[in-house]
Protein backbone atom coordinates (compact mmCIF):
# COMPACT_ATOMS: atom_id res chain seq x y z
CA UNK A 1 0.00 0.00 0.00
CA UNK A 2 1.30 3.42 -0.93
CA UNK A 3 1.39 5.89 1.91
CA UNK A 4 0.62 9.57 1.38
CA UNK A 5 3.55 11.56 2.70
CA UNK A 6 2.87 14.92 1.09
CA UNK A 7 -0.47 16.55 0.46
CA UNK A 8 -2.12 19.94 0.23
CA UNK A 9 -2.90 21.18 3.76
CA UNK A 10 -6.62 21.42 4.46
CA UNK A 11 -6.21 24.85 5.99
CA UNK A 12 -4.72 26.17 2.78
CA UNK A 13 -7.10 27.08 -0.04
CA UNK A 14 -6.24 25.80 -3.49
CA UNK A 15 -5.52 29.26 -4.85
CA UNK A 16 -2.31 30.01 -6.67
CA UNK A 17 -0.02 32.27 -4.64
CA UNK A 18 0.50 35.78 -5.93
CA UNK A 19 3.93 35.78 -4.27
CA UNK A 20 7.06 36.04 -6.39
CA UNK A 21 8.86 32.80 -7.18
CA UNK A 22 11.06 31.85 -4.23
CA UNK A 23 9.26 34.10 -1.76
CA UNK A 24 9.45 33.05 1.91
CA UNK A 25 5.82 33.97 2.57
CA UNK A 26 4.71 30.94 0.54
CA UNK A 27 6.76 28.59 2.70
CA UNK A 28 5.56 30.07 5.96
CA UNK A 29 1.92 30.01 4.84
CA UNK A 30 2.24 26.32 4.23
CA UNK A 31 3.88 25.72 7.61
CA UNK A 32 1.20 27.62 9.49
CA UNK A 33 -1.52 25.72 7.60
CA UNK A 34 0.13 22.36 8.31
CA UNK A 35 0.34 23.17 12.02
CA UNK A 36 -3.31 24.23 12.08
CA UNK A 37 -4.24 20.94 10.37
CA UNK A 38 -2.14 18.82 12.67
CA UNK A 39 -3.48 20.51 15.79
CA UNK A 40 -7.02 20.20 14.47
CA UNK A 41 -7.78 23.87 15.14
CA UNK A 42 -8.95 25.04 11.69
CA UNK A 43 -12.46 25.73 12.97
CA UNK A 44 -11.40 27.79 15.97
CA UNK A 45 -8.56 29.77 14.44
CA UNK A 46 -8.86 33.44 13.53
CA UNK A 47 -6.04 35.16 11.67
CA UNK A 48 -5.16 38.81 11.10
CA UNK A 49 -3.12 39.45 7.93
CA UNK A 50 -1.08 42.67 7.62
CA UNK A 51 -0.63 45.38 5.04
CA UNK A 52 2.40 43.94 3.31
CA UNK A 53 2.95 41.30 0.67
CA UNK A 54 0.84 38.97 2.84
CA UNK A 55 -2.14 41.33 2.64
CA UNK A 56 -4.01 38.72 0.60
CA UNK A 57 -3.31 35.89 3.09
CA UNK A 58 -7.06 35.31 3.40
CA UNK A 59 -6.97 34.04 -0.18
CA UNK A 60 -4.72 31.23 1.03
CA UNK A 61 -5.52 30.42 4.66
CA UNK A 62 -8.81 28.58 4.93
CA UNK A 63 -9.60 30.01 8.38
CA UNK A 64 -11.55 33.08 9.45
CA UNK A 65 -9.52 36.22 8.85
CA UNK A 66 -9.93 39.98 9.17
CA UNK A 67 -7.71 42.60 7.58
CA UNK A 68 -6.05 45.16 9.84
CA UNK A 69 -4.75 48.60 8.85
CA UNK A 70 -0.95 48.70 8.41
CA UNK A 71 0.71 47.83 11.73
CA UNK A 72 -2.44 47.49 13.79
CA UNK A 73 -2.83 43.71 13.66
CA UNK A 74 -1.84 42.97 17.27
CA UNK A 75 -4.37 45.50 18.59
CA UNK A 76 -7.08 43.81 16.60
CA UNK A 77 -5.90 40.33 17.54
CA UNK A 78 -5.77 41.30 21.24
CA UNK A 79 -9.40 42.37 21.15
CA UNK A 80 -10.56 39.33 19.21
CA UNK A 81 -8.83 37.05 21.72
CA UNK A 82 -10.31 38.92 24.69
CA UNK A 83 -13.80 38.51 23.25
CA UNK A 84 -13.26 34.88 22.19
CA UNK A 85 -10.73 33.46 24.66
CA UNK A 86 -11.19 29.88 23.48
CA UNK A 87 -10.24 30.64 19.88
CA UNK A 88 -6.71 30.54 18.53
CA UNK A 89 -5.79 34.01 17.30
CA UNK A 90 -2.72 34.89 15.29
CA UNK A 91 -1.39 38.07 13.75
CA UNK A 92 0.82 37.69 10.66
CA UNK A 93 3.17 40.63 10.15
CA UNK A 94 6.12 41.87 8.13
CA UNK A 95 9.05 43.81 9.53
CA UNK A 96 7.74 47.19 8.40
CA UNK A 97 4.32 46.37 9.74
CA UNK A 98 5.59 45.14 13.09
CA UNK A 99 8.77 47.08 13.78
CA UNK A 100 8.05 50.46 12.14
CA UNK A 101 4.50 51.72 11.89
CA UNK A 102 3.08 49.06 14.24
CA UNK A 103 5.83 48.90 16.85
CA UNK A 104 3.58 50.50 19.47
CA UNK A 105 0.69 48.08 18.97
CA UNK A 106 3.03 45.10 18.72
CA UNK A 107 5.17 45.97 21.70
CA UNK A 108 2.21 46.76 23.92
CA UNK A 109 0.26 43.64 22.96
CA UNK A 110 3.37 41.67 23.88
CA UNK A 111 3.89 43.65 27.06
CA UNK A 112 0.28 43.12 28.14
CA UNK A 113 0.93 39.43 27.69
CA UNK A 114 -1.96 39.06 25.30
CA UNK A 115 -2.57 35.36 24.75
CA UNK A 116 -2.04 35.57 21.00
CA UNK A 117 0.59 34.38 18.53
CA UNK A 118 2.52 36.64 16.20
CA UNK A 119 4.06 35.21 13.05
CA UNK A 120 6.72 37.76 12.17
CA UNK A 121 8.27 37.72 8.69
CA UNK A 122 11.64 39.46 8.71
CA UNK A 123 12.83 39.95 5.13
CA UNK A 124 14.84 43.09 5.83
CA UNK A 125 12.88 45.21 3.33
CA UNK A 126 9.44 46.55 2.57
CA UNK A 127 8.44 43.92 0.05
CA UNK A 128 5.02 45.10 -0.99
CA UNK A 129 5.89 48.72 -1.73
CA UNK A 130 8.95 47.88 -3.80
CA UNK A 131 12.00 47.33 -1.62
CA UNK A 132 12.38 50.35 0.62
CA UNK A 133 14.44 50.33 3.81
CA UNK A 134 12.84 48.48 6.71
CA UNK A 135 13.67 48.79 10.42
CA UNK A 136 15.40 45.42 10.00
CA UNK A 137 17.47 46.44 6.96
CA UNK A 138 21.16 45.79 7.64
CA UNK A 139 23.74 48.54 7.91
CA UNK A 140 25.15 49.41 4.47
CA UNK A 141 22.36 47.41 2.78
CA UNK A 142 21.16 49.28 -0.31
CA UNK A 143 17.44 49.80 -0.75
CA UNK A 144 15.41 52.27 -2.78
CA UNK A 145 15.30 54.67 0.18
CA UNK A 146 18.86 54.00 1.32
CA UNK A 147 20.50 54.36 -2.10
CA UNK A 148 23.98 54.69 -0.57
CA UNK A 149 23.37 51.88 1.91
CA UNK A 150 21.82 52.15 5.37
CA UNK A 151 23.85 54.47 7.56
CA UNK A 152 23.58 54.22 11.33
CA UNK A 153 24.08 57.97 11.72
CA UNK A 154 21.04 58.75 9.56
CA UNK A 155 18.86 55.68 9.57
CA UNK A 156 19.57 54.06 12.93
CA UNK A 157 20.39 50.45 13.57
CA UNK A 158 18.70 47.20 12.60
CA UNK A 159 15.88 46.58 15.08
CA UNK A 160 16.19 43.22 16.82
CA UNK A 161 12.62 42.44 17.59
CA UNK A 162 13.06 39.04 19.26
CA UNK A 163 15.77 40.37 21.54
CA UNK A 164 13.67 43.40 22.51
CA UNK A 165 10.42 41.53 22.99
CA UNK A 166 12.07 38.87 25.11
CA UNK A 167 12.89 41.62 27.62
CA UNK A 168 9.20 42.39 28.12
CA UNK A 169 7.54 40.93 31.21
CA UNK A 170 4.44 39.98 29.24
CA UNK A 171 6.04 37.61 26.74
CA UNK A 172 6.16 33.84 27.22
CA UNK A 173 7.70 32.26 24.15
CA UNK A 174 9.88 33.88 21.50
CA UNK A 175 11.95 32.08 18.91
CA UNK A 176 13.75 33.22 15.77
CA UNK A 177 13.95 30.79 12.86
CA UNK A 178 14.82 30.87 9.19
CA UNK A 179 13.30 29.26 6.12
CA UNK A 180 16.54 29.31 4.13
CA UNK A 181 17.18 25.56 4.43
CA UNK A 182 15.20 22.33 4.88
CA UNK A 183 16.45 22.06 8.46
CA UNK A 184 15.43 25.66 9.09
CA UNK A 185 12.00 25.02 7.61
CA UNK A 186 11.49 22.04 9.93
CA UNK A 187 12.61 24.09 12.92
CA UNK A 188 10.27 26.90 11.94
CA UNK A 189 7.34 24.53 11.81
CA UNK A 190 8.17 23.19 15.27
CA UNK A 191 8.40 26.74 16.63
CA UNK A 192 5.04 27.71 15.13
CA UNK A 193 3.49 24.62 16.70
CA UNK A 194 5.02 25.42 20.06
CA UNK A 195 3.77 29.01 19.84
CA UNK A 196 0.21 27.93 19.08
CA UNK A 197 0.35 25.34 21.89
CA UNK A 198 1.53 28.06 24.26
CA UNK A 199 -1.56 30.05 23.34
CA UNK A 200 -3.93 27.08 23.57
CA UNK A 201 -2.59 26.34 27.03
CA UNK A 202 -3.38 29.91 27.98
CA UNK A 203 0.22 30.78 28.78
CA UNK A 204 0.49 34.19 27.13
CA UNK A 205 2.17 35.99 24.26
CA UNK A 206 4.14 33.97 21.75
CA UNK A 207 6.02 35.08 18.66
CA UNK A 208 8.01 33.33 15.97
CA UNK A 209 10.33 35.61 14.00
CA UNK A 210 11.20 34.08 10.64
CA UNK A 211 14.11 35.19 8.45
CA UNK A 212 12.47 35.02 5.06
CA UNK A 213 13.50 35.39 1.41
CA UNK A 214 12.61 38.34 -0.79
CA UNK A 215 14.52 37.50 -3.99
CA UNK A 216 12.70 40.24 -5.91
CA UNK A 217 13.79 43.17 -3.80
CA UNK A 218 17.13 41.70 -2.83
CA UNK A 219 17.71 41.31 -6.58
CA UNK A 220 19.11 37.83 -6.07
CA UNK A 221 18.21 34.35 -7.21
CA UNK A 222 16.37 32.19 -4.69
CA UNK A 223 19.49 30.13 -4.09
CA UNK A 224 21.61 33.21 -3.49
CA UNK A 225 18.88 34.56 -1.22
CA UNK A 226 19.09 31.44 0.95
CA UNK A 227 22.83 31.83 1.09
CA UNK A 228 22.52 35.50 1.98
CA UNK A 229 20.24 34.62 4.88
CA UNK A 230 22.69 32.00 6.15
CA UNK A 231 25.87 34.00 5.62
CA UNK A 232 24.74 37.56 6.30
CA UNK A 233 21.25 38.13 7.66
CA UNK A 234 21.43 35.42 10.33
CA UNK A 235 24.67 36.90 11.63
CA UNK A 236 22.80 40.08 12.56
CA UNK A 237 19.73 38.11 13.60
CA UNK A 238 20.93 34.83 15.08
CA UNK A 239 18.24 32.15 15.09
CA UNK A 240 17.44 30.57 18.43
CA UNK A 241 15.03 30.57 21.33
CA UNK A 242 15.05 34.02 22.91
CA UNK A 243 12.53 33.31 25.61
CA UNK A 244 10.83 30.16 26.81
CA UNK A 245 8.84 30.64 29.98
CA UNK A 246 6.38 27.94 29.05
CA UNK A 247 7.26 25.55 31.86
CA UNK A 248 7.26 28.34 34.42
CA UNK A 249 4.00 29.77 33.14
CA UNK A 250 2.45 26.30 33.29
CA UNK A 251 3.49 25.93 36.92
CA UNK A 252 2.02 29.30 37.81
CA UNK A 253 -1.16 28.44 35.95
CA UNK A 254 -1.48 25.11 37.76
CA UNK A 255 -0.77 26.68 41.15
CA UNK A 256 -3.54 29.21 40.63
CA UNK A 257 -6.74 28.30 42.45
Amino acid sequence: MAKIVFKHPQSLKENIYHYCPGCGHSIVHRLVAEVIDEMGIRGITIGVPPAGCAVLAYNYFDVDMIEAPHGRGPAMASAIKRCLPDRVVFSYQGDGDLAAIGIAESLHAANRGENITVIFINNAVYGMTGGQMAPTTLLSQRTTTSPAGRKKELDGHPVKVSEIFSQLGGTTYIERCSVSSPAGVNKTKKAIRKAFQCQIDGLGFSMVEILSLCPTNWKMSSIDSCKWIDDVLSKEYPPGIYKDNIAEAKKTAEAAP
Partner: peptide, 15 residues
Amino acid sequence: YPITPQNELTEYMAE
Protein backbone atom coordinates in the same frame (compact mmCIF):
# COMPACT_ATOMS: atom_id res chain seq x y z
CA TYR B 1 6.80 56.53 4.81
CA PRO B 2 6.49 54.19 1.82
CA ILE B 3 3.07 53.71 0.26
CA THR B 4 1.99 53.01 -3.29
CA PRO B 5 1.36 54.88 -5.63
CA GLN B 6 3.65 57.63 -4.32
CA ASN B 7 6.82 55.67 -3.53
CA GLU B 8 8.80 57.29 -6.35
CA LEU B 9 8.43 60.65 -4.61
CA THR B 10 9.93 59.33 -1.37
CA GLU B 11 12.63 57.49 -3.30
CA TYR B 12 13.49 60.59 -5.34
CA MET B 13 13.90 62.55 -2.12
CA ALA B 14 16.10 59.78 -0.66
CA GLU B 15 18.32 60.02 -3.72
